[in-house]
Computed example of a mutant assay.
Amino acid sequence: MLDSELIRRHTSQLIRGRYWAREPLGHGGLGIVYSGWDEELQRPVAVKRLLPEVSYNKKHGEAAWNEAQSLAKVTHPNIVTLYDFGRDEEGVFFIMELVQGQELEEWLVGGPLPVEDFYQLAQQALAGMATAHIHGILHLDLKSSNLMVSRSVANMLQLKILDFGLSKFQPNTDVSEVIQESANMGSIYYSAPELIQMQRIDHRADLYSLGHVFYHALTAAPAFASLPMEEVLVAHLYQDPPQLRTLRPDLDPAICHWVHRFLHKDPALRPESAEAALRDLMLIRSHLFRPEASNFSSPLCIVVSKDWNLVPSDLLPFIDKRVTFTGKLEHQDGVVRLVLSGIERAKELTLPTTPDTDLFSTYLQ
């Protein structure tokens, strides 16, 4: 329950002679977020106030500085903008862009995202994190409640990434404290195995968390939501989530495979970067590799890895059983050629691609 006296103090004084905190928008164990107003620039803002006992706690104070420094370095339309930061007699405060919308976690109570909305969500999340990673900033607390979504006037999904409080986390920090804090805040459903095992962490820990956000968005539930809380961390280490295709048979096989790549326990098997994952997603979405219609009665998904070997074995369940692959894939002058032989016919497909493409898909209708 919010402390009415604390709210009265927060909303009755001008911060730095220009910012008002007005109505509480939300609160948690660390602080309260208010709608606010910037008297100098005459614009709405969000005012985030840490609780007094949090403001003067060394660990949380360092996290606040981390968040402020991280946000100050990054300007991106999908990352909340920091306007000001400081400390006064009431403790630490952030003055930020006022983001309208709803937490993705709440949004998904109404059901999984439609495919087009998912593409928009994933593209914006990856674009924002690619920029953060380029600046050397890790988020390390990506989860559905840290993504704010809304609709534009054109009915497009819009996303903002919030809360960089655990950003720039260093491996020599007490990981056990972060894990305990994550469990308390709900992040446990999105925690990377290397974080749980107190191993070296890099940008691919964020990609693992994003993969679980994407899984949540497509199924309306975290991947391990059916497990008791005490088993979730173990599942991140040793258990694979149910295949998306079994839960959403309407989904494109290529997008299912794309999401599951984020969920590998081994960071080396995940996408190499947010930028690379975004490039792959754009290829899938654009259907760049869709050839002319053929006489197959059901869709056939062909996915080729960048080493130009035969189709990976984990994708074979998605391949039409009437088709076998013969010979080797040939790559020359930006073109991949493969020979498909079926029961009734054989056909050579020429598929445009580039040598550094991680993934592409094509469909025979």
Rank of each mutant, 00 (worst) to 15 (best):
61 G>E: 14
128 G>I: 05
155 N>Q: 15
78 N>G: 05
141 D>G: 06
203 H>R: 07
349 L>Y: 15
352 P>R: 14
43 R>Q: 13
294 S>Y: 07
294 S>T: 14
136 G>T: 06
365 Q>G: 13
73 K>A: 09
227 L>R: 07
261 R>I: 07
187 S>V: 05
24 P>I: 05
96 M>Y: 12
235 A>E: 01
353 T>D: 10
208 Y>P: 01
73 K>H: 08
307 D>Y: 12
212 H>V: 06
344 E>L: 10
227 L>T: 01
305 S>E: 15
10 H>R: 12
314 D>A: 06
270 R>H: 03
290 R>N: 13
123 Q>T: 08
298 S>I: 14
39 E>L: 14
276 A>N: 12
19 Y>N: 02
292 E>V: 11
56 Y>I: 09
66 N>G: 06
265 K>C: 00
193 P>R: 00
205 A>K: 00
269 L>M: 10
31 G>N: 01
47 V>D: 06
322 R>G: 07
272 E>S: 14
95 I>H: 05
1 M>S: 11
212 H>W: 05
139 H>C: 00
176 S>H: 09
353 T>V: 15
277 A>F: 04
265 K>D: 01
174 D>I: 07
113 L>I: 10
175 V>R: 11
330 E>I: 14
76 H>T: 00
288 L>N: 08
102 Q>I: 10
254 A>L: 03
244 L>W: 04
300 L>T: 08
252 D>Q: 06
158 Q>P: 03
345 R>S: 09
198 M>P: 00
285 R>Y: 14
59 K>E: 15
351 L>A: 07
5 E>C: 07
27 H>W: 15
117 D>H: 14
34 Y>M: 01
272 E>R: 12
198 M>C: 07
3 D>H: 10
233 L>M: 10
174 D>S: 01
155 N>T: 09
239 Q>M: 06
336 V>W: 11
63 A>T: 06
159 L>P: 03
2 L>G: 02
40 E>P: 02
8 R>A: 10
339 V>D: 11
135 H>E: 11
263 L>N: 00
288 L>W: 15
271 P>K: 04
42 Q>S: 12
9 R>T: 03
239 Q>D: 05
140 L>W: 02
218 L>S: 02
255 I>P: 02
262 F>K: 00
334 G>K: 10
319 I>T: 09
111 G>Q: 10
340 L>S: 02
301 C>V: 12
24 P>H: 03
356 D>C: 08
244 L>S: 04
32 I>M: 03
108 L>K: 05
363 Y>K: 11
364 L>P: 09
117 D>Y: 14
332 Q>F: 14
144 S>K: 11
286 S>W: 13
47 V>R: 03
8 R>T: 09
34 Y>D: 01
330 E>L: 14
93 F>S: 01
341 S>P: 04
48 K>R: 11
295 N>C: 08
147 L>I: 10
20 W>Q: 06
345 R>K: 11
213 V>N: 11
261 R>W: 08
29 G>W: 11
43 R>K: 13
92 V>I: 15
38 D>E: 12
108 L>T: 05
131 T>N: 08
288 L>H: 13
106 E>K: 13
287 H>D: 13
193 P>V: 00
103 E>L: 11
30 L>G: 00
235 A>V: 01
